[in-house]
Design a binder for these strands. Structure first.
Lengths: 344, 344
DNA sequence: CGAAGTTTTGCAAGCGTTTGCAGGCTGAGG
DNA sequence: CCTCAGCCTGCAAACGCTTGCAAAACTTCG
């Protein structure tokens, strides 16, 4: 029966506040429920009592009745690429702005996705964002069954039925190609990531499309084993092993491009952009640093994030609607790894 | 098969499973509660029924009874420094390993901490990790009042009563100094972060201590406005404005050190380590890349994280114990920004 | 001043679990 | 065959909140 007495050991409940304020429990509840009706007199009494007792509604109990937890799940896997820190920043911020909370799941350490799915579902979250390579059909099936809106972020899986928010990677690939063509480069290479990943495929696809439209040969192609700096070195080694060196390299993302640039400069003694051009993707903060000055294709992260949250929060009304796909345009960020003049 | 009539619209509850299996609700509950007693026959029936119905206990309802949410809150602010991506990786992984979940709060966008605190407390989390500069006494007070174990991570605030897990920053600063002294450097500078931050203070303190012990003058000192690459440039400008150039610069962290290195090389045309030495702190992944090859002091992130979670999960038993402080040792990671031989 | 209309308020029935308690069942010992 | 432990199991009371419903309180107006 510890209401206000002693040191405040046990939690203060609505009941305590009600007693303290001389009103009913429902009254307390209504004061803390945005839409509910309550006279200003009562509101004042309850608020004062809550203040005195340092009361705070229990989110668990509330969600039991309302069926809403205000929790948004975020599944992430790639904790090596700094761009994901920006993404996380953007997501958590957007989520908090709307009075929601972020439940973060890490599926990178070989923690099997399937197992995690169970753990996630126990919390009956209000929405789920998947920003990880592995998008199992199981997951989308579970979400559908439980009516949990799902957004796949920055990936475009073919086999699952889910909302998708992504950059227009194909168009982004084309931008890279057109920029290089315009500047007089002809023999191109594309260094992608694992072939299974849609972003890697799409960027390469767009790149080749634009090359073909310009009557050029398709890009020489190497797939890095993973998105990372070190993989960039290894990819260049393989690319150059063929003997036929390209004039320009388009990389599936910035962190890889940085590894590529350093391999070109330090291992092969090439000058960028004089000897060879490099274009990246993402526009991470480090791409703008002095040693790199990387020309790159920027994804509109913030806009993509906003779009994702919008879809999640709008969904409840619609229920069985067909999943939507939003592709947001990329932009070219020109720095110093592609020469300016279009010489031949 | 989709069990529930109509297509599985509403959640499957223990009640449904009980009916399906021909047992009581309590039986279902006990099967899903690790310690509880249940005959293997009943267990089998319940498990089979749950499988058929795709049942999953509701974490909210459970925590209402048990008073445990299995939720660990993480408060973070610095989403620009890549080291925090590793930290987050490590934390989420460790948390999930123990069957807990991570609730992530971003307090970087000027979202006031005070307001966030309320939002956090509503979820009656089982533990809280604060890895942000701003550690208000209010927060620790609230945690104490609600009996929520609290760990301040990688910060060492003086004014709050809370558990603290941090690297031994003073010793780390000394390591940097001793390395530089041993290699024959004499006139040192320290580029710190905002003076209010304990890590910045402590690293500088240790650095100066070791200088004094060696009979050297204290380090010239500049404080960057924030931890970031760009701030490194600006700090060097201010440092060199005095006219008296140091032979070596110790930076409060790697990302700042990278900015410093590039300012030295590109703006002042200095060679590292021939003209000037640089030492960083953290050992982020990018510190090892070709253009930087930064010699740095590494914090044992994984160990610190494990220690933090241990404290959080042990705490419930102890309750009112005095807060503990754990300082873990750093190590020197030598690369190429300090010359090898100790010439004079 | 009283009737009709409009809030405001309290009651009580949930929400999906866990858990103390007591009755039921099982099997061993007499 | 009966008794007495021991385990299982179901009942029902929480946990802290929301919300439909109807009574109470206040307004407005004839």
């Amino acid at each position: 029966m510890a209401s206000g007495k002693g040191g405040g050991r046990s939690r203060v409940t609505a009941d305590d506040v009600a007693r303290e304020a001389g009103v009913s429990i429902s009254a307390v509840s209504r004061v803390f429920t945005p839409g509910a009706s309550a006279s200003s007199k009562m509101r004042a009494k309850v608020l004062a009592a809550s203040e005195r007792l340092d009361y705070m509604p229990n989110a668990m109990a509330r969600s039991l009745m309302t069926n809403r937890t205000n929790l948004i799940g975020i599944i992430m896997a790639n904790f090596k690429n700094p761009v994901y820190l920006s993404i996380l920043d953007s997501f958590t911020h957007a989520i908090q702005q709307r009075g929601l909370r972020s439940l973060l799941f890490n599926v990178s350490h070989g923690d099997d996705l399937e197992g995690s799915v169970r753990q996630i579902m126990e919390y009956s979250i209000d929405g789920l964002i998947v920003s990880a390579a592995s998008m199992s059909p199981l997951l989308s099936e579970q979400c559908r069954r439980r009516d949990i809106p799902l957004v796949v972020f920055a990936r475009h899986p073919r086999n699952v039925k889910a909302n998708v928010v992504t950059a227009d990677n194909i168009a982004g690939g084309r931008m890279a190609a057109r920029l290089l063509i315009e500047r007089g480069y002809r023999r191109m290479a594309y260094i992608g990531g694992p072939e299974t990943i849609s972003t890697s495929r799409d960027r390469g696809l767009g790149f080749d499309q634009a090359l073909e439209e310009a009557g050029l040969a398709p890009a020489m192609r190497v797939n890095a084993a993973d998105y990372g700096y070190d993989e960039g070195h290894e990819a260049v080694d393989r690319l150059f092993a063929g003997g036929d060196r390209p004039e320009a390299i388009f990389c599936v993302n910035d962190i890889l491009a940085m590894g590529v640039m350093d391999a070109l400069r330090y291992d092969f003694g090439l000058k960028i952009p004089d000897d060879i051009a490099v274009v990246g993707f993402d526009d991470i903060h480090l791409a703008g640093t002095k040693p790199y000055q990387l020309t790159t294709i920027r994804q509109p992260i913030d806009a993509m994030v906003r779009e994702s949250i919008d879809i999640l929060t709008d969904q409840p009304g619609k229920g069985d609607e067909a999943p939507v796909t939003r592709m947001l345009p990329c932009t070219v960020v020109e720095r110093g790894t592609v020469r300016k003049s279009g010489t031949t």
